[in-house]
Amino acid sequence: MGAWLINATLKWRTLKCNHSLFKDYYQSLIPLMRLPVTQAPLMAMDLEMTGLDPLKDQILSIGLVPIVNGVIPLDGAQQKLVQIRGSVGQSATIHGILDNHLAEAVTIEEAMAWFVAQTRGHVLVAHHSPLDCRFLQQDILSIYRQAIVLPAIDTLVLEKNRLLREHSVLKEGSLRLGACRERYGLPIYGAHSALTDALACAELLLAQVAAMGGGADISVADLLS
């Protein structure tokens, strides 16, 4: 997809959208598309889920870490734990989240309202973004009755494209977040949470943009394609 097409698609979606909240959300993104990636307000995100199926599984937590003018202000880093319907089940062991830890958690409705408010006017960044976006889109659809498509910069895709320029075959696991970070000499983070991984993803994007030559002549739309 070319950058112009991204832009055109976004404008078309804005036009078509009847829900004022999301019309405004799309609208806030349009001027960002042409900005150099070093100047555009970005929001790295990571979700923890009970599983991988957006129709059956639920969001457990959402971590958001902003990138402003090419640096990460940690005072903007936030995390929300989400109440789940039913038991956490099997994946509790994976995420280290127990049912009773969710006492401070908010409802999925509150979480989505918060998410939309926080990320409005920011371009989303995630590692393997389609998965996270599908969960968010699913919850937004069921809460607001509005089908939307969240555009997001995918650090996994950026890395895959870069690696494929150098190698024809990629090694198993070479696109995992930790493996990608290691290639840029970024530190290894032991603990995993939505917030930590969102921070890890934000730092990875900074490193990727630097490796592309600093990003002054790379627009947001270039990275979305």
Binding site: G70, V71, I72, P73, L74, D75, A77, L199, A202, E203, L206, A207, A210, A211, G213, G214
Partner: peptide
């Protein structure tokens, strides 16, 4: 302190 920090990346090429 952690909350007041900003994180930056410096590439050798710059």
């Amino acid at each position: 302190c952690a909350k007041s920090v900003t994180v930056g990346y410096y590439s050798k090429a710059s």
